[in-house]
Design a protein around this nucleic acid. Structure first.
Lengths: 234, 234
DNA sequence: CGTTTGCTTGACAGCATTCAACGTTGGTGG
DNA sequence: CCACCAACGTTGAATGCTGTCAAGCAAACG
């Protein structure tokens, strides 16, 4: 495993408006920078942490793309999320001091490593950071509730539509086009996340294309009719 | 809506070993008690908070039983969890200052109301409380991942088995029998939580009974073969 | 005691899975 | 450069789990 490290300063990071320190004053930003121990390089396919690993740090995606997955006793597994720049990884570990899922890089990536005990200390000194940490944990909970709703009460078409709209929305927040997106994950990973099989994912993409909602070329998706996708959620 | 209030002291509460202040020293316990503003009575069927309500406080179930549910734009809804004594409600509201789900009492209940800003302040002064708050938020995330796994990759029988085992486990942690449980929720609510219909819930209960795994008398469930239920998860 | 609500059971239809075959892409080595 | 291979993706046919619709029963309530 490749594991170079470099020094990090939140105050000059181009993610500071989307990341943990969002909304902090300049002096606080300077101070809070010390929470980041290092920035880890993770090659495609490598894990940032694995189920059962001791929990010591949270991570923020700096560049690249990750997925998290959980495992059943019976050998089933399921993708529980995809994380892009500025998003937090590792919150699952706080509850039991061990990670309860794998976090795997889907392309060569970099993540800021934030020792949890250090973060706790700084959060006690900087209320704005404490608030933002809680907001991000809460957002994760809200996101998971949305996923549960999707898994529990939507048909395959609606799940995929909701997935694509969510992805487009998050990419847009990062300055990318919201209508043209490149999927970093395979059909199998999409299916795992949505609780459907690869075949159904593939068929549904074909349906969407035939209905004029999308243009699909391998992993490049062009959204032609966003309102049409939205209507599928009703 | 009935809304009596009474004064609360964590230091003498019989839930202190299961609730937010778990693990605190006696002096900390005394101090932390001030985080609780009041204890709210909520009648069966009433909501502690609703989707869209302004977020001001977290709640801890003191007596009784709650469910949370989210709503889609299209009118679907889904139960996202059942909460019993010592469990936290309202974490969803932190991220956007508004609640994103309903919390409804399933029987006459009482919940300690903890103003979030006050909690933030005390958590900065008492590291043990800060740690425990984070642990509870993390536990909620892990719980939700488990629910996603269940919804996404298990058959109806396995979902119901996992649900019953989880319930039995939590009741055991509160000093109740782990083999004999009284369900506070309807078949419909179970189905909503598990992403299956009432009819399937009912049929599955019948199957379990015929297989000698359970004895079912209305909402009273007697678990006859716990290992057998566990095997369904493989 | 009648009404309402919740629960169970049956028959049938449908969406998604499973199993299988085939096409495409990208990397490797001859 | 091309053959080959492995991984990924698409499509088809058949099976099956679960949903839907409908009826009947039990329990709770006023």
């Amino acid at each position: 495993m490749k594991m170079d490290v470099i020094k990090v300063a939140c105050a000059t990071c181009n993610l500071r408006e989307i990341c943990l320190p969002i909304g902090l004053t300049q002096p606080d930003l300077e101070y809070v920078g010390q929470m980041v121990e290092l920035r880890r390089f993770v090659e495609r396919g490598e894990a940032l942490f694995r189920l059962g690993d001791e929990f010591k740090s949270l991570f923020v995606v700096w560049t690249g793309f990750f997925k998290t997955r959980v495992l059943t006793e019976g050998g089933h597994d399921q993708v529980t999320g995809f994380q892009m720049s500025g998003e937090l990884l590792g919150l699952d570990g706080i509850s039991s001091d061990r990670h309860t899922c794998d976090a795997v890089a889907m392309e060569d990536s970099q993540a800021c490593q934030i020792p949890y005990e250090r973060l706790e200390g700084i959060a006690r000194e900087v209320p704005g950071l404490q608030r933002q940490l809680h907001k991000l944990m809460s957002r994760e909970i809200v996101r998971d509730h949305g996923a549960m709703l999707s898994l529990g009460s939507l048909l395959a078409e609606a799940r995929l539509a909701a997935f694509l709209l969510d992805l487009a929305h998050r990419l847009q927040a990062r300055g990318f086009s919201s209508s043209s997106l490149h999927l970093r994950m395979s059909r199998e990973e999409i299916g795992s996340y949505l609780g459907i099989t690869v075949e159904t994912v593939s068929r549904t993409f074909t349906h969407f294309q035939q209905a004029g909602l999308l243009e699909v070329r391998q992993r490049n998706i062009h959204i032609l009719d966003e309102p049409g996708l939205h209507r599928l959620l009703e």
